[in-house]
Design a protein around this nucleic acid. Structure first.
Lengths: 383, 383
DNA sequence: ATGAAAGCGCTAACAT
DNA sequence: ATGTTAGCGCTTTCAT
């Protein structure tokens, strides 16, 4: 069995009281150099590893941060884990996961598990549907929680991206290029991001006095397969669109797949722009014109905010809503030649309704190694 | 502050002893219908959530599985998390993460954290370098551990992929197509996967009586940027290769990037094959000929094995080594026309040295929605 | 079928 | 500067 060497063992070996061992381990009170050394030696010799669960029982904190999201499907999953590791390492936090599978019932189960494990705080990307049960619970238990990605409830801190204007910019650009029949492959129902992106699409149409046709908006359910199917519906219309907007990364993959199968070339036969950059967007031909989310930054802000809340639970203060801007990345799938200036002035955002704090624009370099000069896409920061 | 409603509170409210509450919660001994109901009601009314950390202190198990790997860089990260969630949910396991950043010192830190949190078991993808310290520790503490991806030590269970023959097959295919100068962009030094893939490359060369030239093997360090640089070295040779093998997914991205920048077309100017399939391999032009790892299956096997070990720590038995076959996916980047039969008979594997168990071949469909008939790549199972 | 009591390994008063 | 002691919230003998 596993090392049952306890603090008492160490104390005995060092010839001191258990509390002394505790204090040298935690530096919680001065210990004479001699005893400290004796204790350190004893620890070394016995291979003692402090038992954090026993510690947690008395201090009633676990230094555990719970993450609730659909692991595979949510693009914030890995960045959040990384942020907790990076930021949290300094403060001794670790992360525990709970997959919600994007269904409220699993979400409830997930939150309960985390609650019973007494996590110090939770980062949650709310599943679509009625999440009142989970959220009420979280409020009742008063466990520090920050919502991420999808907005769901004014009682919580939230960090996410600006969707309305960013999507509108995508559409404005297409309109500036002369398109009037623009299809939208939209996301899962019940997600704020889905609704906001649809709203952005309609906004741009309105501005240009183009009629909104419901049949041009097809449900891609936020994933590739359904998106490919939804695309079919669009293409089978008597008057297919001349341009398509895909509302998230996974759906973009489905759309590309579908277009390819039908032998429809981008952008010659069909212009395509998308919400979310893809890791491999640069490698596709044509390269995709997209709005990129500052994913890493969102994750980092969320974790920082959470840790701050945990640190002073009392100084609660007003809930923070951090809505970060997306970045318009102009490449060629919209139909523009490589390096062309951006058609259709990208309007500056006017500040979301619940925007309480303006964040700095994301740094241009998004990490994935520099591109050669002429190959560089035009990056337009949006705020 | 957080719900401090304890088992004692519930007991008082229900007018029973704490032990009775415990037994109805855990079903550990019969409780009369009346009392059981009273307890259940009290729990309901108080919103009691059992404190798992207190429980852990007495039972000395946490139902926590630790995951140690380079979160962002390791392709097994998300699949392992998913597997723990899927398999573990039935048994009440959750996962705690620790990012090793692929450096032994962080790895030591990570393992220590998990040890102090008293996880019931660990899934570890060993960092490159001298991991004796970590592994000795794990052995000493006798915490059930399964190694994944990179093989490191005979004292542990291990689950990973067959590399030698799979890589050889890639090279054999190129040779069959007439290539004699074949470059290899290889992975990080100190990783078993790197060494095995180089060995496979050499094996195929030997079989064909082609000379092995060290300068045709360049260090891509398992990531995109370095791979792109390494590619440069290959291309700047007086006699550049006519075909390239990329030894993992991230490096393939770098290689593609580099080739594109130099205006080198695949496969016309340069044939390209790779270890690891890419999520978007189907979307590239040309589509990539690769060996795909059964990632999800590896993760699932690892987690199942670990949970089994945890269940009966004593019945230790011999260490298991599960080496799963890769799948040759024949597409067009090798220079073959779409749907062409596979040139260069792909030799069946001969069983790795430490192969103790033969696993079934991965099911052909790899999840990402069916391809249209004529577009379907030729998939050749390897064992 | 139920209750009382001991104790898991630690921290944090409270002594001295 | 160090030791003693009383819990943290639970499980699990041991009684009854």
């Amino acid at each position: 069995m596993r090392s049952p060497v306890t603090m008492a063992d160490v104390a005995r070996r060092a010839g001191v009281a258990a509390s002394t061992v505790s204090h040298v381990v935690n530096g919680t009170r001065p210990v004479s150099a001699v005893l400290r050394q004796r204790v350190l030696d004893a620890i070394e010799e016995t291979g003692y590893v402090p038992n954090r669960v026993a510690r947690s029982l008395v201090t009633s904190d676990t230094h555990l941060i719970g993450i609730v999201m659909s692991a595979l499907t949510n693009r914030f999953f890995v960045p959040v884990v990384s942020a907790i590791d990076r930021v949290g390492r300094r403060h001794g936090y670790s992360s525990v996961l709970a997959d919600s599978r994007d269904r409220v019932d699993s979400e409830v189960e997930a939150v309960n598990t985390l609650l019973s494990r007494r996590v110090d705080g939770i980062v949650l990307a709310p599943a679509p549907g009625d999440r009142r049960q989970v959220l009420d619970r979280l409020v009742a238990e008063e466990v520090p929680t920050v919502l991420i990605d999808r907005w769901a409830d004014g009682r919580f801190d939230w960090v996410g991206v600006e969707n309305v204007d960013a999507t509108a910019n995508l559409v404005r650009h297409l309109i500036a290029l002369g398109h009037t029949r623009i299809g939208l492959v939209s996301g899962m129902r019940g997600l704020s991001t889905t609704e906001e992106r649809v709203a952005g699409y309609r906004l741009a149409l309105d501005e240009a006095n183009l009629a909104y046709s419901p049949s041009l908006v097809v449900p891609g359910k936020s994933s590739a397969g359904p998106a490919e199917q939804a695309l079919g519906a669009l293409l089978d219309r008597p008057q297919p669109p001349t341009a398509i907007v895909s509302a998230n990364n996974y759906m973009t993959i489905g759309v590309l797949q579908g277009l390819r199968k039908r032998g429809i070339r981008v952008p010659d036969d069909m212009a395509l722009v998308a919400y979310d950059d893809l890791d491999f967007a640069e490698l596709l031909q044509p390269r995709l014109t997209v709005v990129a989310q500052p994913v890493a930054q969102i994750a980092t802000e969320a974790v920082n905010l959470l840790i701050k809340r945990i640190a002073n639970r009392d100084l609660a203060g007003p809930r923070q809503v951090i809505r970060l801007p997306g970045t318009f990345v102009h490449r060629e799938s919209c139909g523009c030649p490589s390096g062309a200036p951006l058609a259709g002035s990208v309007k500056p955002a006017e500040g979301g309704p619940s925007q309480e704090r303006k964040a700095r624009a994301e740094a241009p370099g998004r990490g994935r190694g520099g591109l050669a000069g002429s190959d560089k896409p035009t990056v337009v920061g949006m705020s």
